[in-house]
Design a protein around this nucleic acid. Structure first.
Lengths: 236, 236
DNA sequence: GCTCCCACTTGATGCAGATCAACTTTCACC
DNA sequence: GGTGAAAGTTGATCTGCATCAAGTGGGAGC
């Protein structure tokens, strides 16, 4: 890990595009930027461990961070995969406390790191910065709810179909995409074992999904949209 | 449903105890209270449907509200069971939009209903009210993460054991408790079919858990704490 | 171009929990 | 206190996914 570098203009520009900075004017942006430094991590580096005292929250600039919970028996349960633009651990801004999950870089990654105490002080008299953090929290809450609901209602092929439909670039009825990361990471994101993801892709071949490495082609989006219906119920 | 009543002093006192109102001074409390009215619902009444335009967020005073997602095939997936003191749908304060889940009263229930637009206006120049909402959102995010992690890592008996350990009143090594609602609602909360909850309770009998209606007795808390280890791994 | 390693795939097996069905208990209401 | 409907339990079966165990393939490095 490389620690505590100053933000370049490129970094500031990247942060300006994130949800966290949306709706802030120039002054407010600068005030929030003043709480941040840049940190770099290698693949598999830990950003922080579950249970450690929370000192910073983070925003991914490049690479990926994996958030996960520890269970009994040394097992790990993935909570969320953070991509460029995503922030995490802002939930500690209000009350501080310990990190409630671990965070690990899954590629060579660059992140902005915000000092919780400084941001907390800022929010005291800058309502718009508070609103920006609320917006970010709201979105994380809704996406975690999405995740929980799909875990409870959808099968593996359904979850994969949903992921493809929400991430592909349509070209008429067909579509293409390239996975932004390894399949094993996608499996974690979807709450599946890597083998289950692989089998889900095979079963989607019948629905016109062709997978080659990270490249995926979909021959008919409408067919893919029916996957939930097909797989979810036994024909009479 | 009974709609739009003014808040009594009792209601105001109850709201004062909630996380949403924590950390607010007298002025701020009154400002927030001014956005609220009281509504009453009968068992199974819908507070709002998924996809409807969001107009209010809610705080439970008495009774229970069930939040759930609709899936394909008319299935419903439960997101959260809200008890007295819990608030929900505050995630719409920042940006508005539609309700992302349905909410249903599971008993005769009384709730405070806050006008989103009024609260949004309030937050613009009252940082502490924004912070209070952030605190509430942070807590919901963390508890949804708990839920997701336990869905992904724990078996049914483990989840039930965890629920008991976090909700019982210890008396030395033993403990007692009374379920605040029907077992079918607890099953929903834990993401289980009612039959699975029933079987989980039977399997916990061996760990000294006695269930009679809504009354539960635990003979030895330490034994219950080991359930995760026992059930999670096959002995060699 | 060859090789090694790691990601991925495929097959076989086992288990947790959903589902369906029947029965029992509980509770509300007359 | 009796009656009916809802809630909960128990048993049998089935399905989806995890797990374990071999393979296969592809990309980085020499």
């Amino acid at each position: 890990m490389t620690t505590g570098l100053k933000l370049s203009n490129v970094h500031k520009a990247m942060l300006g595009e994130t949800i966290l900075f949306s709706g802030l004017n120039r002054d407010e942006r600068n005030a929030l930027l003043a709480c941040a430094t840049i940190v770099r991590y290698q693949t598999h580096d830990m950003l922080f461990h579950q249970g450690e005292r929370g000192e910073y929250f983070y925003c991914v600039l490049t690479g990926f961070a994996r958030l996960y919970r520890l269970g009994g028996d040394n097992q790990e349960g993935d909570i969320r995969i953070c991509e460029p633009g995503d922030s995490f651990a802002e939930c500690l801004v209000t009350d501080g406390g310990d990190y409630r999950y671990g965070a690990q870089a899954m590629e060579h990654s660059i992140l902005a790191r915000f000092n919780l105490e400084q941001v907390r002080a800022l929010v005291e008299h800058r309502p718009h910065i508070g609103i920006a953090i609320m917006r970010s929290l709201s979105q994380h809450l809704l996406s975690t709810i999405d995740c929980l609901a799909s875990d409870r209602m959808q099968t593996a092929p359904q979850r994969v179909a949903t992921y493809l439909l929400t991430h592909c670039k349509p070209e008429g009825l067909a579509a293409k995409m390239r996975l932004p990361f390894q399949k094993s990471l996608l499996a974690r994101k979807l709450g599946l074992a890597p083998e289950a993801l692989s089998r889900a892709f095979s079963s989607l071949r019948a629905a016109g999904v062709t997978v080659s490495g990270r490249s995926i082609e979909i021959s008919n989006l409408n067919v893919l949209k029916t996957i939930p219906a097909i797989t979810s119920r036994h024909a009479p």
